[in-house]
Amino acid sequence: MTKQMLLISVPLGKAERVVQLATQAGASGATILHTREGFAEPKAFQLEPQRDLVMIVTSPEIRAGIEESVQQGFDQTIEFYCLPIIDSVGLDRGLPIKE
């Protein structure tokens, strides 16, 4: 079974909501990284906004459902990035498969 890693970047504090929505859509877990965002042309005194980067390992079958569920839970447009996974360990017991 092929797997993919979904990367979702949201403003700080919104990660829990993303995880909740993704779990409802069939995701089995998530990992959150606290990050800060960079700008193309920062000003002399520029604060870098903090972002939460949510990483979800999923199967291609339920990926679209997760994206739709997360997008519906937010007013602003959410960017989704997807990484193809070549091999894995520790996932074969947990990933739900869409009926």
Partner: peptide, 10 residues
């Protein structure tokens, strides 16, 4: 279960 995961990318 709960011992972690490892994934690889190209």
């Amino acid at each position: 279960p709960n011992q972690g995961i490892a994934v690889t990318f190209a």
